[in-house]
Write a protein that binds this DNA or RNA. Structure first.
Lengths: 217, 217
DNA sequence: GACTATATAGGGATTAATACCTATTTCGCA
DNA sequence: TGCGAAATAGGTATTAATCCCTATATAGTC
């Protein structure tokens, strides 16, 4: 005996064409049922609020009038965290993807995705997992990549200088650093001076930013 | 007429069992041919160096003696950037995944992946794309998530205070800030004092770290 | 053996930041 | 209408950081 569980889906997209396309895509899928449609976020939210039990999953476009898919997602996750949200988009721009992630979307898919990928995404999400379009991983990772490239900047400093810098970043004064390292305050000040010169920074604030940028702390 | 292109694969894993498992997995795949095996990174690299044209793709485990899969990947990408690398691992720990990404791996897959996912990953990678296990996206994104959660910390500051803080982070002195905002230096100092109190920081360095942590700059 | 980098330490002066205060104006909210 | 928050400004004192010097010991390199 197989237990047949239907997942009721709410589609939100301001292009009727997309909604129709998705509907035809799910025509033969018994597990997924399109139980509602909306042409903007506001409308979708109203539908959910009028019967919060009706939908288990929302598939929403990003760019919609009145309320974007991201905002819709945020609202849903705040008020009805048990409802899953799959965000659709034309693009895989880093900021949109990050927005979706920060809105706690369960998935992010490009509109160019085929039926197989759609079904796979829905399977994963309804099973309590997440699904993100493959292309976005290198994109959201780019930032880290960039930082990593400049990692070696710290190597222009000597061991002692790195030690001092680390304590500076930890908000210790020259006097405290001197005590900690059993040095004269003057020595510490000289190290500071040298670190400033080597890194091309003008102030302690610059040093702190330099250190953080380069993975210290 | 179908053009049949064979992708020659080099397997690197220090568990023969895994190698054998992968070999049996690709037994019926005409598109992929296992053309080499190695039990550690050093061995794999030697095989490649002796005939760089032989392999189009390397599937490597992360943890191996002599040379880890990550190091192997880094070497391959530096010397033979045209060879694709798929990294395998038991875990989806954030640091390992990040290491793999920074080593410019074309894919990251868990050993628990089934044949279908393997084939899909190989298809994507040989087509010039990337494939990363779904589970890792939320993981590598966690950092950003955490920052985002504390984003609102800046909201405890008034508009003027945020303005002043922003200039502090840009390495301006109180006097410069005063000139820029057409204020008395005293006013700026008072703002600083209030910002310190509100944020619970003791020094300017603390403020800079607070600002960066919370997305300013 | 001379040269260079590193780590050490000091003198002396200036500028910047921090820690306490008080006080006025303006603006929104209860 | 009065209360509190925000923004403004000043006084005074202390501490910290920065700048510009000199100087010594040590270790490694050419």
């Amino acid at each position: 005996m197989t237990i047949e569980i239907n997942t009721h889906i709410l589609l939100a997209d301001d292009h009727q064409l997309v909604i129709d396309g998705l509907k035809s895509m799910f025509q033969n899928e018994t597990r997924y049922v399109i139980s509602g449609e909306a042409n903007n976020g506001q409308e979708a939210l109203s539908l959910i609020q009028s019967d919060p039990e009706k939908f288990q999953l929302v598939i929403t476009d990003v760019s919609m009038s009145h309320m974007t898919g991201i905002e819709l997602c945020r609202h849903i996750k705040q008020q009805y965290p048990e409802i899953k949200v799959l965000v659709l988009s034309m693009y895989s721009g880093v900021s949109v993807v990050k927005e979706a992630l920060s809105a706690e979307a369960d998935g992010y898919l490009l509109k160019s995705a085929g039926k197989d990928e759609f079904i796979q995404a829905l399977h994963r999400i309804t099973d309590g997992g997440t699904y993100f379009a493959q292309d976005i991983i290198p994109i959201i990772y780019n930032q880290y990549q960039r930082e990593k490239a400049h990692q070696d900047a710290l190597s222009i400093l000597t061991t002692r200088e790195r030690e001092v810098l680390s304590l500076i970043v930890k908000e210790h004064t020259s006097e405290e650093i001197a005590r900690k390292l059993f040095l004269s305050k003057k020595t510490v000040d000289n190290h500071r001076q040298n670190i400033l010169a080597k890194t091309g920074c003008k102030t302690t604030i610059g040093l702190v930013k330099f250190a953080i940028r380069n993975g210290m702390e």
